[in-house]
Computed example of a mutant assay.
Amino acid sequence: MTEEPKSKKAKEKKGKICVILLRGSVGVNPKIRETLKTLNLNSVNNCIILEDTSSTKGALKVLQGYTTWGEADASLEKDIKASGREKVPYGLHPPRGGLERKGKRNLFSGGGSLGYRGSAINSLVRRML
């Protein structure tokens, strides 16, 4: 029985997830505020890069209406550090060209900016550098 959990862990992806806070935390549910504090996201346009684990995905599900995230490619963290940002969380500028058409209150899958965006997070971060 001990073999199953080990093989299950081995099957999990060990990539990196880039998370950006797009909405402020004034007047939000205390559970959401505590999750933001745990992830060290304390102001708008802050970015962190996390390991892809099940606990991270659970936290991101709670924060779906306030953050956007996706799989970071290998060179993204190097590009962020090369732009002079070394403190975590990385403070980014608002994106050049603006956010998606429906703005900050809709999910990315519906034309907005929030939630899971897959590999499109890389282009967003590069527009924010």
Rank of each mutant, 00 (worst) to 15 (best):
M1C: 03
E3M: 07
E3L: 14
S7D: 09
K8D: 11
K11W: 07
K13M: 09
G15V: 11
G15I: 11
I17R: 05
C18Q: 02
V19P: 05
L22W: 00
R23C: 11
R23F: 07
S25E: 12
G27M: 08
V28T: 08
K31D: 11
K31W: 00
R33F: 12
R33H: 14
E34Y: 06
T35C: 13
L36P: 09
T38P: 00
N42G: 04
N42Y: 03
S43C: 08
S43A: 13
V44P: 02
N45T: 05
N46S: 15
N46M: 10
C47P: 09
C47E: 05
C47S: 13
I48E: 01
L50F: 10
L50M: 12
D52M: 09
L60H: 05
Q64A: 14
Q64M: 09
Q64V: 14
G65H: 10
Y66M: 00
Y66A: 00
E71Q: 11
E71F: 09
E71V: 14
D73C: 12
S75R: 12
L76E: 05
L76H: 07
K78R: 08
K78C: 00
I80L: 12
I80V: 15
K81T: 11
K81Q: 12
S83A: 14
S83Q: 01
R85N: 06
R85W: 02
K87S: 08
K87L: 08
V88G: 02
V88I: 15
V88C: 03
G91V: 08
G91N: 12
L92N: 02
L92G: 04
L92I: 04
P94Y: 03
P95I: 08
R96W: 00
R96V: 10
L99Y: 15
L99T: 11
E100R: 14
R101A: 12
G103Y: 04
R105N: 14
N106C: 01
L107K: 13
F108R: 09
S109F: 01
S109Y: 01
G110Y: 04
G112C: 07
S113K: 04
S113I: 04
G115P: 10
Y116A: 12
S119A: 15
A120D: 11
N122I: 03
S123P: 00
S123V: 11
R127K: 15
M128P: 07
